[in-house]
Amino acid sequence: MAMIGQVQEVPAIAVHNLSKRYGNRLTVDNLNMTVAPGKVLGFLGPNGAGKTTTIRLMMGFLRPTVGHIKLLGYDVQLPKEALLARGQLGFVPDVAGLDPAARGLRLLDELARLQARSPIDREFVCPALELDPADLKRPIGALSRGTRQKINIVQGLQHRPALLILDEPTEGLDPLGKQALFELLRAARDRGTTIFFSSHVLSEVEELCDHVALLRKGCLVAMHHLAELRDQLYKQVVLRLTAPEPSTVSSRLAGLPSLVDLHHENDVWHFRVGELQPLLRLIAALPVRDVTIEPSSLADIFLQYYRSGEAPHDQ
């Protein structure tokens, strides 16, 4: 079971053996994950990986073929418990489908009434997102895509939920809007809100989340603290030698475990390596002029997982 945080109290999200099948197609395949309260999880995957299906299963919009989901300790497949869970939930869907005839302010009021919770945070969420009060009084159909998305975000955050589930929330936002959203999410995290942030934009997840879950073809391929994930994965190495003998250096480097993409131009050697200790021992024995070791970015990690379909250490 993939797990983030010390789950000593009731987990904010607990998914057990979750699968969803459409005919012969398995969209979500035996998903297991647990998220402790107060954590920010980036839910990553390429298009069609099953992110939105997983979220819809969590929200109770879809029924699992097999498996169980508990949000905030409540089983979402039991109607009474699902109501209790949704009472403390904030959800920002990818396609909000805001009615063009509705006016933003009235829509937010209606949704707050259905939530049965006061929209206590609307007063600071709207200004933080630079949502013009005049725009909230206009029909949604007359608003820009970015403004509509801001209203979508406000409806998810306005009642100060204990668990916030966001599906591609930055779609349509400009860079300022994205930064404002991230600041709001950080503030929510600091208050103890658990955040489940689904995205395919790696830089956003890297900026906001402390943990990531990688989904591929409906399967969870990794779930780690971002730093741990980087440690586990390849580092980019650039090695400059003073008096290289290409054949000797090549053969010695090739002897390193988990080394890939080795190539050189004159006295500069480029490669990626998974384990650092053997490399450091080798460098000590080489005539090194300069060495650069960079951790993988999330984009590198993403590509390493999805290009081959396996974690690098399994290669």
Binding site: M59, G60, P93, G97, L114
Partner: peptide, 17 residues
Amino acid sequence: GEIEHGAIYLVLSRPIR
């Protein structure tokens, strides 16, 4: 129509049956 446009997800994410 509510499902097609996605509006239903806003309403049914609330604690209502």
